[in-house]
Design a protein around this nucleic acid. Structure first.
Length: 890
RNA sequence: GGACGUUUAGCUCAGUUGGUUAGAGCGUUCGAUUCACAUUCGAAAGGUCGCAGGUUCGAAUCCUGCAACGUCCACCA
């Protein structure tokens, strides 16, 4: 292509698809394919990230886009650094969420009760069909984002191999007594007809009617409740042990007739009861409240269920109420109490109602026979674990989860989330893993009368499989190692080096659901952590800070933004201007700004290609060895060195936004606005222009892969940028040149400002007088043409004091400078000038280089010196300690 | 009720262990324009870093208290 034909603006839409195809077919995304592209990957250390598998419930949103942008940045960075990178792609069947979604769709299509009408098999087919479509969309979206993962290695939480892992782990846990069947109070969703784990229910603020009453006229204690309909199931009244009002009743059992039903109520004392709330006495309903169930366990109270799974009153509620809905029963009870004279008062109180996470329907708590993972039960470890326990030692799952993070084997970033994690782990209750839905891993348990067998295959005639499926997080918990082949010995053996994975990058909103469960599963099954770092990114919100949701209509769709602004711009807008773990507001405006930047980079490159046409990169590198000539050369190379060092460090520390800002400031501020402009004045800069550009492009690649790869191909490097080495610095920092260049740069800026202030014609060249010291004078002379061209100056007179008769000698346009570093008395000189030249304000030179630390100390009072000395000593000790640790690690 | 987070320019946000004159982008104002890029260039204005105390030679940064907003957890019988 003729370089003159390069389009003026970068056209992302025209090149992205082709570039992606080329990457993919070259094998750059395949950890084994890398070796063919470059032998340096043969003996390379692995670097592995498993993709948090997107739910097959629809399409990807900007939160996913952010996840992909950050993970791809890491993967591309480490790939260029020479690590054998493996980004494991896959999707999640998201059991309940997907089934609910499909059910809603089917209802829209006219089905009244899709599950009943279609039956298990046909219904599941519908779900699978939907999940497949969703998967296809997700894959194409990931590709559009430029994500460098190898879809030939795609995994699915519900495929054959993952099913093997699930069954294997279930069996292990069953044998270790960690998975048990139990009749316990669980969260029940009457609409979706399934149990829910504690993490799948939410609280919603509502108003409720608090009713104060007595069970019957003769009952000695008044109680309050917002759930009168559950009171048929009361088996106790709990009071605080020190409550004088009720002390005399403690231990007694009363018979009562509650709205026609005989109940037996024991008065128990328990410190959880708040004597100040209501009447200070609490009606205990063990079957319909987890708190009451725990209370009942302590006091060995019987459990009476009165609400069924259909959300209606059961026979236990008595003849007049059986079959009524909760609402109907509640009203009727209050009426009955009133008629019987047992109602004391009614008041409205705020209440948080338990609702399902994926719906608006209230969740009931009722006792059911379900499968649970016991998190507090000690078991014998199957292998040495986390370097703390040996095979055969006893521990609980909770112990493992705590220790993995406590011991810093897993680092959670930002650190503040560690506290939240510990709090969650400490308060964790047994995990109900069985769901009464069809879409998911069916529980590998077979029943034959009282006999139970665990396995995927039927043990024989007369055995029936548990119809329930597993909580989706059970299979996602295995994700880090089930995707690497476990439990298949050969596949797992081949991938062993990738586990523990290096980083788990995800939104903080699934810290508990997923991250914690992966830690549980990995430490239990393998005795090792699933990942070293957990990097939590914030949520993407709209420009007003609201969550993006379809009902609000504020959803920005990545697939609409990409054709409009280019993938690189979308990615930058998700990575820049954000801090780890902090929510981010995103507007289209911001994406547009980054589109402008991709275009800037394009035009910088285009300019270099056009003006230095004919120079190959090799020639440039050869020329380069002759070394820099001018101050601006020394300066840009020193700056490049700084940027290279800092960007590399910042990315390894997950400070992507800062790394990007540094790069942008250098690219736009230093390189384009100054060095490129100077190159038009001082010639013979081709070599250095190429040199800087050929290092800028690789550094930008992880942030904006498409435009950089495109330019890279145009500048004639036969190797793809995606597998090119991360640039290492060939220079050292040259502080002296940086300081000197700053003097020139500030001088030019100051002159520009003064010109504007004095209303000087922008195009005109002027004569100026400068009062400067010797060093500055030398610098100005050495960079004469640069200063003159960029500041539009015809002649500069350098003087060390104000000449006699001046400025009348020079008519018209005058600029005056005072240099602090010259040692002149600023105040005196300023006054002098103001007196002599009326109407012109002298400016105080700002070109004086900032004091170095040494100079600062020498000028500072003694105490400051002391303080800084102490700090220096501290730093030295830290360095020593680090060195010691390094040696011991070696 | 418990915990955590946020509060910095008109807006969106950076600010790593306390350190020289607190930064960026957008927006605003003024100016430029065939010469890589109007998706551009130059310049300016704009901040008592939420409030009140404290520690320190020195605080946006550390400590205490308060306020507003937000998030999570628990619970309201």
């Amino acid at each position: 292509m003729d370089l003159k034909d390069l389009p003026k603006a970068y056209d992302a839409a025209a090149v992205e698809a082709g570039i992606f195809k080329q990457w993919e077919s070259s094998g750059a995304f395949d950890p084994d394919g890398l070796e063919k592209l470059d032998p340096r990957y043969k003996e390379a250390d692995p670097y592995c990230i498993v993709l948090p598998p997107p739910n097959r419930t629809g399409t990807l949103h900007l939160g996913h886009a952010k996840m992909l942008a950050v993970e791809d940045l890491l993967i591309r960075f480490y790939r260029m650094l020479g690590r054998k990178t493996y980004w494991v792609p896959g999707t999640d069947h998201a059991a309940l969420a997907t089934q609910v979604k499909v059910e809603q769709l089917l209802i829209k299509e006219g089905h009244k009760d899709p599950r009943k009408e279609l039956g298990r098999e046909k219904f599941l087919e519908k779900v699978k069909e939907f999940a497949q479509q969703s998967r296809d969309t997700i894959v194409s979206q990931c590709k559009a984002m430029g994500s460098s993962m190898d879809w030939k290695r795609e995994k699915y939480t519900l495929d054959e191999e993952r099913n093997r892992a699930v069954n294997e782990v279930f069996k292990m846990m069953f044998e270790d007594g960690l998975i048990e069947r139990g009749y316990r109070v669980v969260n029940w969703d009457p609409v979706f007809q399934t149990t829910l784990s504690d993490d799948e229910v939410e609280h919603k603020e509502t108003q409720a009617e608090l009713v104060t009453f007595k069970y019957d006229k003769d009952f000695p204690i008044e109680i309050s409740t917002t759930r009168p309909e559950t009171k048929f199931g009361d088996t106790a009244v709990a009071v605080h042990p020190d409550d004088e009002r009720y002390k005399k009743f403690i231990g007694q059992t009363f018979k009562a007739n509650f709205c026609g039903k005989e109940i037996s109520v024991k008065v128990v004392a328990d410190p959880v009861v708040d004597p100040a709330f209501g009447t200070g006495a609490l009606g205990v309903t063990p079957a319909h409240s987890m708190i009451d169930a725990e209370l009942a366990e302590r006091h060995q109270l019987p459990m009476v269920q009165v609400i069924g799974t259909d959300g209606k009153m059961m026979a236990e509620a008595g003849a007049g109420f059986s079959g009524l809905t909760i609402k109907e029963a509640r009203q009727k009870i209050v009426e009955t109490l009133e008629v019987n004279g047992c109602l004391i008062k009614k008041e409205t109180v705020p209440q948080s109602l338990l609702i399902a996470q994926r719906g608006e329907s209230p969740v009931e708590q009722l006792p059911l026979r379900q499968w649970f993972v016991r998190v507090n039960k000690p078991f014998k470890l199957r292998q040495d674990t986390l370097g703390r326990w040996q095979k055969g030692d006893e521990a609980t799952l909770k112990d493992l989860m705590s220790f993995a993070v406590e011991s810093k084997q897993i680092r959670i970033l930002p650190e503040s989330f560690e506290k939240i994690y510990f709090h969650w782990v400490n308060n964790l209750r047994d995990w109900c893993i069985s769901r009464q839905i069809w879409f998911g891993h069916q529980i590998p348990v077979w029943y034959n009368g009282e006999k139970i067998e665990v396995g995927n295959e039927s043990p024989g005639e007369g055995w029936e499989r548990d119809p329930d499926t597993l909580d989706t997080w059970f299979s996602s918990g295995l994700w880090t190692f089930s995707t690497l082949g476990w439990p298949d010995k050969k596949a797992w053996g081949n991938n062993r080096g990738y586990h523990p994975t290096n980083v788990l990058e995800t939104g903080y909103d699934i810290l508990f659901f997923w991250v914690a469960r992966m830690i549980l599963m990995s430490t239990y099954v393998l005795g090792e952590i699933p990942f070293r770092d957990v990097y939590l990114h914030g949520l993407v919100r709209d420009e007003k800070g609201r969550k993006m949701s379809k009902s609000l209509g504020n959803v920005l769709d990545p697939l609409e933004l990409i054709p409009k602004y280019g993938t690189d711009a979308v990615r930058l807008s998700l990575v820049m201007g954000t801090a780890p773990g902090m929510d981010q507001k995103l507007s289209e405006e911001k994406i547009k700004d980054f589109r402008n930047f991709t275009n800037k980079l394009w035009n910088i490159s285009r300019y270099i290609m056009m003006t230095t046409a004919g120079v190959t990169k090799e020639q440039a590198d050869e020329q380069w060895t002759k070394g820099p000539i001018t101050l601006s050369d020394k300066w840009i190379l020193s700056r490049l060195h700084e940027v290279q060092t800092n960007v590399t460090q910042l990315i390894t520390e997950y400070q992507f936004s800062q790394a990007g800002e540094l790069l942008r400031d250098f690219t736009w501020g230093d390189f384009a606005d100054w060095y490129l402009e100077i190159s038009k004045i001082e010639k013979n800069k081709d070599a250095i222009l190429w040199h800087v550009l050929s290092r800028l492009l690789p550094m930008w690649h992880p942030f904006m892969p498409f435009v950089t790869e495109h330019i890279w191909s145009l500048i004639g490097d036969p190797r793809q940028l995606v597998v090119s080495p991360w640039p290492s610095s060939a220079h050292i920092r040259d502080e002296e040149s940086e300081k000197e260049f700053a003097v020139i740069r500030n001088l030019i800026t100051d002159i520009r400002r003064l010109r504007a202030e004095q209303g000087i014609e922008p195009a005109s060249f002027v004569k100026i007088n400068l009062i400067v010291d010797k060093d500055t004078a030398r610098l100005i002379k050495e960079n004469d043409s640069v200063v003159k061209q960029l500041a539009r100056i015809e002649t500069i007179d350098l003087v060390d004091s104000i000449p006699e008769g001046w400025p009348t000698a020079v008519s018209g346009k005058i600029v005056i400078g005072l240099n602090v570093a010259s040692g002149l008395d600023i105040g005196k000189e300023k006054a002098k000038i103001e007196k002599e030249i009326s109407g012109l304000k002298p400016y105080v030179e700002s070109t004086t280089a900032k004091l170095s630390d040494k100079e600062f100390i020498s000028k500072a009072p003694e105490k400051v010196v002391q303080g800084m000395q102490e700090k220096l000593d501290e730093a030295k000790m830290k360095i020593e300690a680090l060195e010691k640790r390094l040696i011991s690690l070696k």
